[in-house]
Simulated assay, not measured.
Amino acid sequence: MKNQVSTIYKQAERFAEITKTAIITGNISRAKKCLALAEQLLITGSNETKIAISNVYLFSVSSFMELRHCSISNLFPKSLKAEYIKQINTSGV
């Protein structure tokens, strides 16, 4: 059970790593599927799930994409993009 993911936050972190790997390797269709799943979790998940997707997954993926100058607006679904914009406005960046 060495690879067992213990908390929802660790799961969100691992999910972000999978998404970033898909982007790095050029597998944009897989990256879009991951982002669509994250979107679905953000909309229909429990409160804790929504927080994990927003604070762990979205922060990790968006930071990664910005550092590599990837176009976020083309990949992020509507709700994820709205949450991303909310985070940027809150942070004062």
Rank of each mutant, 00 (worst) to 15 (best):
K2L: 04
K2V: 12
N3F: 13
N3V: 10
Q4S: 03
T7S: 15
T7K: 03
I8Y: 05
Y9R: 15
Y9V: 09
K10W: 11
K10Q: 15
R14G: 14
R14F: 15
F15G: 07
F15I: 12
F15C: 07
A22W: 02
A22Q: 12
I23D: 01
I24N: 01
I24E: 00
N27A: 03
N27L: 05
I28N: 03
I28A: 05
I28M: 09
S29D: 15
A31T: 09
A31V: 08
K32W: 10
K32T: 09
K33H: 13
A36L: 11
A38S: 13
A38C: 12
A38R: 08
T44M: 07
S46W: 02
N47C: 00
N47I: 03
E48Q: 09
E48H: 05
E48N: 09
T49F: 04
T49I: 10
T49C: 08
K50F: 08
I51F: 00
A52E: 05
I53L: 08
I53Q: 14
S54T: 13
N55Y: 00
N55I: 01
N55F: 01
N55V: 00
V56S: 13
L58I: 07
F59R: 08
S60F: 10
V61K: 07
V61A: 06
S62L: 06
S62T: 14
S63G: 08
S63K: 04
F64Q: 02
M65S: 05
E66K: 05
E66G: 04
E66F: 01
E66C: 02
E66M: 07
L67D: 12
R68V: 09
R68Q: 13
H69C: 05
C70P: 02
S73N: 07
S73E: 14
N74E: 11
L75Q: 04
F76M: 06
P77I: 02
P77F: 03
S79E: 15
A82D: 14
Y84G: 02
I85V: 04
I85S: 01
K86Y: 14
Q87W: 01
I88A: 01
T90L: 13
S91G: 07
S91R: 01
G92E: 07
